[in-house]
Amino acid sequence: MEVSVDEPAHGALRLGNRDGLPDDIAFLRAHYPRGDWRLHTNFGQLADFWLQVHASLRHEGSEVSRLVDAFRDRQIDAIQLQRAFVPLLNGFLQHLDQHHRIEDSLYFPKFRLLDERMVVGFDLLEADHTQIHHHLVATVEHARGLLNALSAPGETARRAADNYADTARNLLDLLVKHLADEEELVIPAMLQHGERPLT
């Protein structure tokens, strides 16, 4: 069963509309509370790596936002922003896109095979990826607008930075919610079934 982000029946579960995952989708969450994950005998290298990647994505996204905010607050100038912004943003977006591609093509199909009750949850996560990608594209467009505006006179560059910041904030807000929900499906599943079926 595929979850479409456009289906009205799943509107409440669409990323940005939902407040976490319902218990019937994250059905292992109660058995494996987040605070106990690392203490479980099945918590291994893959689970640890997964959480590290998510922590890195959160950090990279926040670093880009902090940099642009420093420019908006006149703590750095246009030259300093341009020098740091492009590599930071490119690194973040490339890591995010790569992570989602690996999940969709490699890991999510394996999770679906572990228990048929997981199918709807991982279909939902894939729908999240599609929605996040749309926001990623919009963020890139506003980033280009910001870079083009850095040499413009007056307040043009700061207006472009404001526009970028609004778009990037939407992306990061959705991403943070998605990562938390994904962890509540992925890590309990690893603890329940072990990591071997996923490698």
Score class of each variant (00 low, 15 high):
His134Ala: 12
Arg196Trp: 00
Arg29Gly: 06
Leu113Gln: 02
Leu179Glu: 03
Asn17Phe: 12
Arg58Ser: 10
Arg112Lys: 13
His142Leu: 04
Arg38Trp: 02
Phe122Lys: 00
Phe111Asn: 00
Gly194Glu: 03
Gly154Glu: 05
Ile25Trp: 04
Leu114Trp: 02
Met1Trp: 12
His10Leu: 13
Gln98Leu: 12
Gln75Gly: 13
Gln131Thr: 15
Ala30Asp: 12
Gly145Lys: 07
Ser151Ala: 15
Glu116Asn: 13
Arg158Gln: 10
Asp115Thr: 00
Ala143His: 04
Ala138Arg: 14
Gly91Glu: 05
Ala189Glu: 02
Arg58Asn: 10
Gly35Tyr: 02
His54Arg: 07
Glu141Met: 09
His31Ser: 07
Ala47Asn: 07
Ser65Asp: 13
Ala30Tyr: 05
Leu175Met: 15
Asp77Met: 09
Leu172Tyr: 06
Asp123His: 13
Phe27Cys: 03
Leu15Asn: 01
Ala55Pro: 01
Thr41Cys: 01
Leu146Tyr: 09
Leu125Cys: 08
Gly44Val: 00
Phe108Leu: 00
Lys177Tyr: 10
Ala189Ser: 14
Leu96Asn: 08
Ser4Gln: 07
Gln45Asn: 10
Asp6Phe: 14
Leu96Gln: 13
Phe71Arg: 06
Val140Leu: 07
Glu182Trp: 02
Asn163Glu: 15
Leu89Met: 05
Lys110Arg: 13
Ile76Ser: 03
Ala12Leu: 15
Val176Gln: 15
Asp6Ser: 14
Val3Phe: 10
Asp115Val: 00
Thr199Asn: 05
Met190Phe: 00
His133Thr: 05
Phe27Lys: 02
Leu67Asp: 12
Val68Ile: 04
Pro8Asp: 11
Asp128Cys: 12
Leu150Trp: 12
His59Pro: 02
Leu93Gly: 06
His99Trp: 06
Gln75Lys: 15
Pro87Lys: 12
Arg14His: 14
Pro87Val: 11
Asp97Pro: 05
Gly11His: 14
Ala168Ser: 09
Asp23Ala: 12
Gly91Leu: 07
Ala189Gly: 09
Leu114Lys: 02
Asn42Gly: 01
Ser151Asp: 15
Leu93Thr: 09
His54Tyr: 10
Arg58Gly: 07
Gly154Arg: 04
His99Leu: 08
His178Met: 05
Ser4Ala: 10
Val119Ala: 04
Leu57Trp: 06
Leu124Ile: 07
Leu88Phe: 10
Gly61Asn: 03
Ala180His: 14
Leu39Thr: 08
His95Gly: 06
Phe108Trp: 01
Met190Thr: 00
Ala127Leu: 06
Arg14Asn: 11
Leu174Arg: 09
Thr167Asp: 01
Gln80Ser: 12
Lys177Leu: 14
Leu113Trp: 00
Ala161Trp: 03
Ala78Cys: 08
Val176His: 13
Asp123Glu: 15
Ser105Tyr: 03
Leu174Lys: 10
Leu191His: 04
Gly121Glu: 04
Glu184Gln: 08
Leu172Met: 14
His54Gln: 13
Leu89Tyr: 00
Asn148Gly: 11
Asn17Ala: 14
Arg169Met: 08
Thr130Trp: 11
Ala26Gly: 07
Val53Leu: 05
Gln80Ala: 15
Ala157Phe: 08
Leu51Ile: 10
Phe27Asp: 02
Asp73His: 14
Ala78His: 06
Val137Asp: 07
Phe111Glu: 00
Glu7Ile: 01
Ile25His: 04
Arg38Cys: 02
Tyr32Gly: 00
Pro153Ser: 14
Ala9Met: 12
Tyr164Glu: 07
His133Asn: 06
Arg29Lys: 15
Leu185Lys: 02
Phe108Pro: 00
